[in-house]
Design a protein around this nucleic acid. Structure first.
Lengths: 125, 125
DNA sequence: TTCGTATATCGTCGATTAACGATATAAAGG
DNA sequence: CCTTTATATCGTTAATCGACGATATACGAA
């Protein structure tokens, strides 16, 4: 119904961002992200043990995260090696950053939140 | 089932973060956040028009965002003036920042994602 | 008091989610 | 071949969600 061009500059669609947020909208899935963050290397069935839910339930949570692109899984042997896919979190992070930028209007002005490629083409550095 | 102390340093519970993410997990609610971000001042029934859904539906979305603490509403006249409550987004942003920090291991080391008070006590300005 | 405006709540309905146990797959090893 | 191991899928259930129209509430203004 509208353009919101200023904010749209964040770059991504509402659906994109909502999809990512939705995938993160469950404690078990946040837990999984944390596990993958802690052991940055990939993990197999340990996640099931970590989360403490039934194997099929955890598998489903992993599927949801994978479907949202937040994690990826490499198949080895009978195991699957999961790891985070940070890029997919950029749209959501970008929006949050805008909120924080606004709140600290002009105070920082640049050194705010800029994950690798999130804040547009930065020629220098 | 586990401690994950390193990551837990992010500070907030899985439920906390998941609750915020869940509240953001719908396109209409992302849209509302963007509207509030664009017109940083508060807004009334304009949101209904912006979002393009039935008034009762939008009211429900606003209720969900408010329940999650992401927005707050000041009552004026017969209107309600909504605005973002950035603080409530910090737990989620903090987790995302950790992901990005890890990805750019040592490359940047500090100038990454640090909304006002998110990255711990930073003595120097 | 009566009216009009802006929101909130109610009741409904179809769709989706989350959880589980049971079962199916796939690949390595005996 | 048959077994083991790690995952994925199926089928079911209860619960929650998202949307709507209709209605209720609250309050300033006429």
């Amino acid at each position: 119904m509208s353009m919101l061009p200023t904010v749209e500059t964040a770059g991504y669609s509402d659906d994109d961002i909502a999809l990512t947020a939705k995938a993160l909208g469950h404690p078990a899935r946040i837990h999984i992200v944390r596990v993958l963050l802690a052991k940055q290397s990939c993990i197999g069935c340990d996640i099931v043990e970590e989360v403490g839910l039934a194997q099929s339930t955890v598998s489903e949570h992993l599927r949801i995260l994978k479907a949202a692109g937040i994690i990826k899984g490499e198949v080895e042997h009978p195991r699957v090696c999961y790891s985070l896919n940070a890029d997919r979190l950029l749209p959501l992070a970008g929006l949050l950053n805008l909120v924080f930028e606004q709140e600290s209007q002009g105070e920082l002005m640049g050194s705010i939140c800029c994950p690798p490629g999130a804040c547009g083409p930065e020629g220098a550095a």
